[in-house]
Design a protein around this nucleic acid. Structure first.
Lengths: 250, 250
DNA sequence: CTTGACCCTGACGTGGCGTCAGGCTGTTGC
DNA sequence: GCAACAGCCTGACGCCACGTCAGGGTCAAG
């Protein structure tokens, strides 16, 4: 297939394909004697991946890096795309709900506060959001490692791992309830065990990374919710303990 | 409020606000004697509109035109935004479905044709998509009529759907608390109802896809957190129940 | 063998900011 | 009462992902 046909099929312009060729993101596998670009089925395949990642907000350079990563199999791309798309779905329906809330408020003659209006936006500006997601997961070795490892886990593995996580959760609750300070030796010991559990089960987790995670436990509601559900105030407690433990190690 | 505060509230950079001022899209209604930009509540209002339209893919110049159109009342903006967001929701779930179809095909060892792959893309390249949408406003009469109907229709839809989701959540909690095993008939029945609800409300969800979702409930902490917030251990419970149900169907 | 659709390679333009640089402002702590 | 430091200002240049000509070759149909 030559450029025009590919462009029509994929819904992009010829110029876009020229551009992708120039920057080495997608070079057609062949040329005619006259210099016409010839795209193979494999090229279409790659183009498909490129367009998906592009739509998800990745800069082209990163798309190239992702697709040229030999250690990433197709299934991994599918899983990642699936996850990012579901995130977007969630976010979009949140926005729909926000607009509906505003409609309703208008009908009732109520005004919303600026905070309420920006709620769905505020934390999650679209570009920043995607960038944020990538920062936390996509680009990190840890994420790649985690998906590679967890893909191989059996149901029994998962039962064991979640049991271990539950156990750790109980220990967290216990140590907090005991009145021990989050930077006490007891709390830091739990933190250390928790870190080693992550390293064994998901990805190599250094004390510094663990400290970063700790910060996230309070900054990110999604993570905080997990701990808060076990005991009120636990998110902050775990966060402090984990960071104290990292300091102790360093 | 001055720039920094507004930027933090809205989740944009200060530079962005400078830019919007420069191009006349959003000029703060006041300045201090020292030249500091002062944003009023009305300015925040406008910023909110700007960000929504921007997210929907409108070039800033058109956003300005839309917002400066004196003949358009706020309700019209809300209706338009609602319609565009619902379109996006539809498109995103189509993409999710496409990725899931591809996952399934891969698992079964089937290859999709290029046409199948680009299906969801083809017609709806994001830029073309928005252009197409904008084109449609030409027939304002038909547009106004159709939006009123879909807006009214979908509002009820969403109320119903969120209520159903809440109900499902409660049933999950109840069945777990009842002591029934996650692979008991009771739990699997809830799983089946949940699957059918997803199929009706969002996208065609096969038992296999549902099992995949189930795995994600524990693998992805963000999903897990949703269930964990309802009741500790629920993420794992739901995950297991959903997979058991898929096995029962297969 | 011409006509018209399609292809090529530069080269410059554009939108929506990011990112300094160089300088004023305003608050907090001593 | 002033230093220090965060926060604001205005240029000005940079960057990405293409759009848009310009100038010229290619190829199937009539």
């Amino acid at each position: 297939m030559n450029v025009g046909e590919v462009a029509a099929l994929a819904g992009v312009t010829v110029r876009t394909l020229h551009h992708y060729d120039r920057i080495g993101l997608l070079s057609p596998s062949g040329r005619t004697s006259a210099g016409y670009r010839q795209y193979s089925a494999a090229d279409l395949d790659r183009l498909h991946q490129v367009l998906l990642y592009r739509e998800l907000g990745f800069p082209l350079e990163e798309v190239a890096a992702l697709l040229d990563d030999a250690s990433a199999d197709p299934a991994e791309h599918l899983r990642r795309q699936h996850r990012l798309l579901r995130d977007r779905l969630e976010r979009t329906s949140a926005m729909v709900a926000a607009v509906e809330k505003e409609m309703e408020a208008r009908d009732m003659g109520i005004a919303l506060t600026p905070e309420e209006r920006f709620e769905v936006f505020g934390e999650h500006d679209p570009a920043q959001y995607d960038a944020e997601v990538r920062e936390r997961w996509g680009e990190t070795d840890a994420y790649a490692q985690s998906t590679r490892r967890t893909a191989a886990y059996s149901k029994d593995d998962w039962v064991r791992i979640t049991a271990e996580m539950e156990d750790l959760g109980n220990r967290w609750v216990a140590v907090m309830r005991s009145g021990a300070a989050p930077d006490s030796a007891e709390a830091m010991d739990v933190a250390e065990d928790n870190r080693q559990h992550i390293s064994r089960s998901f990805y190599e987790c250094s004390p510094e990374m663990h400290a970063g995670l700790g910060r996230m436990y309070v900054e990110d509601e999604r993570f905080a919710a997990t701990y808060e559900a076990m005991a009120p105030g636990l998110a902050r407690y775990v966060s402090t303990a984990v960071q104290a433990n990292a300091a102790r190690q360093g």
